[in-house]
Simulated scan of single mutants.
Amino acid sequence: MIREYRGIPLNGSGFVFGRGYLCGYKQAYIGGFDFEFTPVIESTIGQFTGLLDRDQVKIFEGDIVGFGDDSPTCKSGMYGELGTVAFSESDACYVVVLASSGREVQLADHLLFSDRHVSRKVYGNVHQNSELIKE
């Protein structure tokens, strides 16, 4: 399976999406689905994790996600724990680095809070919404 990537183009308008990326000597590119390559800011390149949030939004590296209680008894719409999606080299899996503690929580569906009614929601990303995770 070919994973999807995204990155912010040099003109800074939104994201471009593609099947892969190249990092050359001075420039990074996202390869589009039409095999056109768009120059992007290298630090903004993120890979699709293969997972979706509760609203069926794709979750990418660099996204800011929140964890919330989906149980029928929960009155709060607030997602208490916000964190940033990253790939953990040591665990070889996607994790959420919690803003409050720096602790890493695995992102995988069947491992995350499997005994509770907890779901994920994408609130933004660290490139365009960094204020969401700053204290």
Rank of each mutant, 00 (worst) to 15 (best):
L51K: 00
L112N: 13
Q56M: 09
Y123D: 12
L132D: 00
D55I: 06
L22N: 07
S76K: 05
Q27A: 07
D55P: 04
F67C: 09
D109W: 00
L112S: 14
E61K: 08
I2N: 02
S101T: 15
S76R: 03
L22P: 00
T73R: 07
F35N: 10
G102C: 06
H110Y: 12
D115C: 03
C93W: 00
L82C: 04
E89S: 05
I2E: 08
I133M: 06
C74L: 04
S130W: 00
L132C: 01
G62L: 12
F113D: 12
I133F: 03
L112D: 06
V96D: 10
D63Y: 06
V118W: 09
S88C: 15
A108S: 15
N125K: 03
I41H: 13
L82I: 05
R3Q: 12
V97W: 02
E135K: 14
E131Y: 14
S100N: 10
I30F: 03
G31H: 06
C74V: 03
S76F: 02
V118T: 15
T44P: 00
G46M: 02
Q106F: 14
D69V: 05
F37I: 08
G31T: 11
Y79T: 12
C93P: 04
G77Q: 02
S114C: 12
E104R: 15
E131R: 02
F48P: 00
C23M: 05
M1K: 10
A99S: 14
A28R: 08
L22R: 14
Q27I: 10
R120S: 08
